[in-house]
Simulated scan of single mutants.
Amino acid sequence: MNTLLHQPRLTADELLSALRVLFPQTQPTRSTTTAGVEVVSVLVASDRVRDVWDEWRQKHGETGWWPFVGGMSPEGLTRDGRLHEGVDAAFLENMVAEVVCQDHDARAASIVLASFLWLTDSGSLEQGELEEWLDEYDPDRLAPRLSPEIAEPLPGVPRWVLENPKPWEARDQWWLHFVPARGGYEVPVMLPGLIMTGNGSTHYLHPADDAALLRRWHEQWGAELFFASGPRMELVVDRPPLDPRSAAQAATELTGYCDDTVDDARVAGDGMARSTMWSLWWD
């Protein structure tokens, strides 16, 4: 049977065996979604999880399994009806085919445009605000308002895993999940519902939309999916844009994707967009 699903180099059993040798105290485990996607998971100490994730993402070419950090257990990822209701093998095949074949740059641009049109059509704009929103969504208009090019990326500011701002949510361990995927950009498709983009006051996105933007950011700026859990996501960015025009492009795309977090494109263009970590949250 021909399939566009990614075929990892290691089997789930081989990956699980390797993790059990490296993490004998935490009992690595595996689970399977209703669509047949296998997930291999291990608990990792909070102060080590970034280093362990980085080590295994460097091994992605050898394993074919993409690692990401999350708070949900593997059973919750694969058996929670909210995440996988109606997602069977045929549905998954169709979604992956869409992601593999789509023009992700064009789809990413359409997502930003749809976000802008949603705002302008919502009837919430007052007189004169349209020009202000154009400044937020048009990178050519935004770029002149940003700071000059910087020599080095800004240090990333993690919000969820490494420096949780809410002490009562602090935890000693996080789950490191492995999914058979070509890259982190495929994870939202392999695990639909993992990332809860949108809410009652904004436009909703399809997993293929998430994949389009994540793949574009991966190719343009080396952004890699690091953390995903419900309405929270973090990307580690290896080559963030440093000049005003590129930073403006990234900031407008971040605004269109997640205006709950990026509600001021100028601030984002001078800050998060030029940093080594993009932390997003949907209200």
Score class of each variant (00 low, 15 high):
114 A>S: 14
115 S>K: 05
115 S>Y: 08
116 F>R: 15
116 F>Q: 05
120 T>G: 01
120 T>Q: 03
120 T>H: 04
121 D>E: 14
122 S>V: 06
124 S>N: 08
125 L>D: 01
126 E>N: 01
130 L>S: 00
133 W>T: 02
133 W>F: 13
134 L>T: 11
135 D>G: 15
135 D>N: 15
140 D>H: 07
141 R>N: 06
142 L>P: 12
142 L>A: 04
143 A>C: 09
145 R>Y: 06
145 R>E: 15
145 R>W: 06
149 E>D: 14
150 I>H: 09
150 I>A: 05
151 A>Y: 07
151 A>S: 15
151 A>N: 09
152 E>R: 14
153 P>H: 09
156 G>M: 13
160 W>A: 04
161 V>E: 00
161 V>G: 00
162 L>G: 12
162 L>S: 07
163 E>F: 11
165 P>V: 02
168 W>L: 06
171 R>F: 05
171 R>M: 04
172 D>F: 04
172 D>T: 13
173 Q>S: 07
173 Q>H: 15
177 H>M: 08
180 P>E: 11
188 P>R: 09
188 P>A: 08
189 V>P: 01
194 L>C: 05
195 I>F: 03
195 I>L: 10
196 M>V: 08
198 G>D: 07
199 N>S: 09
200 G>S: 14
202 T>C: 10
203 H>A: 13
203 H>S: 12
